[in-house]
Amino acid sequence: MRKLVKILLVIVLLGLLAGSLYFLVQRNQQPPEQFETESVIRGTVINKAVATGSIVPRKEVVIKSRVSGVVEKLHVQAGEIVESGALLAKIKVVPDAVALNSARAQYEMAKISASNAELELNRRRKLYREKLISKDEYEKYRFDFDMKLEEQESSLSNLELIRDGGNGASGSVSNEIRSTVIGMVLDVPVKQGDTVTETNNFNEGTTIASIADMTDMIFTGTVDESEVGRIEEGMALKISIGAIEDKFFEGVLEFISPKGVKTDGAVLFEIRAAIVADSDSTIRAGYSANADIVLDRRDNVLTLDERALRFSDDGVFVLEQLGEQEFARQEVTTGLSDGIRIEIIEGVAEGATVRVP
């Protein structure tokens, strides 16, 4: 019995010893290192500059009031198409009290002067018919009457303009705001009852409406100073609009500003580009957009992820995979890059697998 117990103890001890040895070996054994790899494939590399901006009409006209007063009635709203000369709004004139009193006084004085000139002309006409005065003297009084009559009409027109905002005799009504162009009404920033001021040399005046030709849209944006020297007018653009997903619009660069503007520490240059019309999509003014300006491109060339490149004093190289976890240094010649993938001119073949650090 004792002999059997001793044998069992020896077996248990040997088992524990074997388990401990196996555990220590497994703990000290390092797993094989795994490396990320990339393949050399054919593709297109496009080097481009990116401009951020928005879509705006090429021609947008702001219609302002020519008189001060209160908006009596609006005849249009945003989104309507109007013709040139269409009535947009009517302004109820609130005349300046001092100017109105002055105009009334001038008109009354002009009426009195015209009336006195008419009486004097009638007296001189009678004397002329009786041949008591010469024709030249008579004509002088007739001319004076005509001048006084003209002054009366002029003062009346001025009074009507200040009081009513228009001249009934000439048919020109300045309190009627009319469109000067054909297009779509983009915005009517005033409401009925709002107070408006006239536009003059000292005052910009109140905007009644903005009108634009929505069939001729352009992209306006900015590019960084590091890229502006690489672009030129006439270059093609691919424009993506935030509100229209999965669609690009063609454009042609028309303008590059000769002067940069410093914004948040960066110098930006304004650019403008014509958008090729697309009847299938509705483009609205103010859409945010990005434009890719193609600087250079390579089609059907060998390309590789730029992360796989390594640099030394001798040049650029990659670690090409020869076998399982086996890599060899291979010098390469690179070409155009788009910031993610780069053109491989020579050094490795299509389909080669290289290590990515």
Rank of each mutant, 00 (worst) to 15 (best):
K3E: 14
L4C: 08
L4F: 14
L8A: 15
V12C: 14
G15H: 07
L16N: 06
L21M: 12
V25L: 14
V25F: 13
R27N: 10
Q29M: 15
Q29S: 15
T37R: 04
T37V: 15
V40E: 01
R42T: 11
V50A: 02
V50W: 04
E60V: 08
R66K: 12
V71L: 03
E83V: 09
A86G: 04
V93T: 07
V93C: 07
V94L: 12
N101D: 11
R104L: 11
Y107P: 00
N116G: 02
E118M: 04
L119C: 04
L119F: 12
K126V: 09
R129V: 12
Y138D: 02
E139Y: 10
Y141T: 08
D146T: 11
M147Y: 10
E151H: 09
E151P: 03
L156F: 14
N158R: 13
E160D: 13
G166D: 07
S179M: 10
P189E: 01
E198F: 04
N203H: 10
T206R: 02
T207F: 01
I211E: 00
D224L: 05
E225W: 05
V228P: 02
A236N: 12
I239D: 02
E250Y: 12
D264V: 11
V267Y: 09
A273W: 01
I275K: 01
V276M: 05
A285T: 15
A289H: 03
N290W: 07
L295F: 10
N300A: 14
T303R: 12
R310P: 01
S312K: 09
D314Q: 15
G315E: 07
V318A: 04
E324G: 04
Q330K: 15
L336A: 07
I340N: 14
I340Y: 11
E343T: 12
V348S: 02
E350C: 06
A352T: 08
